[in-house]
């Protein structure tokens, strides 16, 4: 999910409280303005391809956020990776997006061509990114070995600085294992919006947790109901976190995740080769200051919560 991948990505507050300089309208482009053509390598499966209107919400060197209706779209440098709402630029696209996009300026997409005052992106030729279907699942012992290794790597990554959310996160994992909705909602209440950073650690953990639980629903009704209740609890609290984190929590509630997280989840559950798991894990851990680590912590908590019971059910 781009929340962990997009170091600089912010969604727009839908109704900014302050008409600050960040959201001042930009003047329209003169008709004869030359635009930089940005090559788009791929677009996420939730990105509208033909028509939309929006505004630039925020611009960073490697990412630019657009607000379109109630959705956030992100134009991102290739390195940030794919995501459901990401327009991923080709590798050699111009470098600093701040030079091309002004906060508040209007964006028009007509017939698959996005235009701003200084940039133009053609979407129709871009590949549409969708998460690949995971392969057949590994045996329980192999998955557990991957999870143990991942837990070790996570601990190494954190070093001597555990996350402030560790206690509440562990307790939420236990509540998931016990399918205890009341306890889970109590912990969600603590976690939403908690922690340093643009996407607070608690939110990153919750996104990872939902991704982990989604992988092990296994058609079990009790789990499906628990997951729905958990997602509803998260959704009800998104106003209590940053706009960017709220956006990705909403996506996670609807089971939409970014490429690094999907790849890591698939590797942990389906990939026999530990090197492949290691690469996926390292790529996710490397995201942001702590976002990647917090997301991995959530994913491992979700998988650990339901993996043993899954095996028991399978045996039965």
């Amino acid at each position: 999910m781009p929340s962990v991948g997009a170091l600089h990505v912010q969604p727009a507050p839908l109704a900014p409280r302050v008409a600050s300089r960040e959201l001042r309208p930009a003047p329209s482009a003169p008709a004869n303005t030359l635009r930089v053509a940005l090559a788009v390598e791929s677009i996420g499966y939730l990105v509208p391809r033909m028509e939309f209107i929006g505004r630039v919400h925020s611009a960073f060197a490697q990412a630019c956020n657009l607000v379109c209706d109630d959705e956030l779209l992100t134009i991102a440098a290739s390195a940030i990776g794919d995501g459901p709402t990401t327009l991923r630029l080709a590798r050699r696209a111009p470098t600093d997006l701040r030079e091309l996009f002004d906060v508040g300026e209007r964006i028009d997409c007509r017939q698959g061509v996005v235009r701003t005052r200084r940039a133009q992106l053609r979407l129709l030729q871009a590949r549409v990114w969708c998460p690949a279907e995971p392969g057949p699942s590994l045996g329980r012992a192999r998955i557990e070995a991957h999870l143990r290794n991942a837990q070790t790597r996570l601990a190494q990554r954190r070093g001597s600085a555990p996350s402030v959310i560790d206690g509440a996160a562990a307790a939420l994992g236990e509540a998931c294992r016990a399918l205890d909705r009341e306890r889970a909602v109590r912990h969600v209440d603590h976690l939403v919006g908690w922690g340093e950073g643009l996407t607070p650690a608690g939110d990153d953990f919750l996104v990872g947790l939902l991704a982990g639980l989604d992988a092990l629903l296994d058609g079990v009704e009790a789990r499906r109901q628990f997951r729905s209740a958990l997602a509803a609890a998260v959704a009800a609290r998104t106003s209590r976190t940053t706009p960017v984190a709220a956006h990705y929590l909403r996506l996670a509630g609807a089971r939409h995740y970014s490429a690094p997280l999907v790849d890591l989840r698939a590797a942990l559950l389906c990939e026999d080769d530990p090197d492949v798991v290691e690469v996926a894990l390292a790529a996710t851990l490397a995201i942001g200051a702590t976002s990647g680590a917090d997301t991995v912590a959530g994913l491992l908590a979700g998988l650990n919560a339901w993996l043993p019971a899954r095996s028991a059910l399978a045996a039965a």
Binding site: H8, P13, P16, R17, V18, S58, L198
Partner: peptide
């Protein structure tokens, strides 16, 4: 800093 966005790092 109202509506000011900086990355986590």
């Amino acid at each position: 800093f109202a509506n000011l966005y900086k990355d986590s790092v």
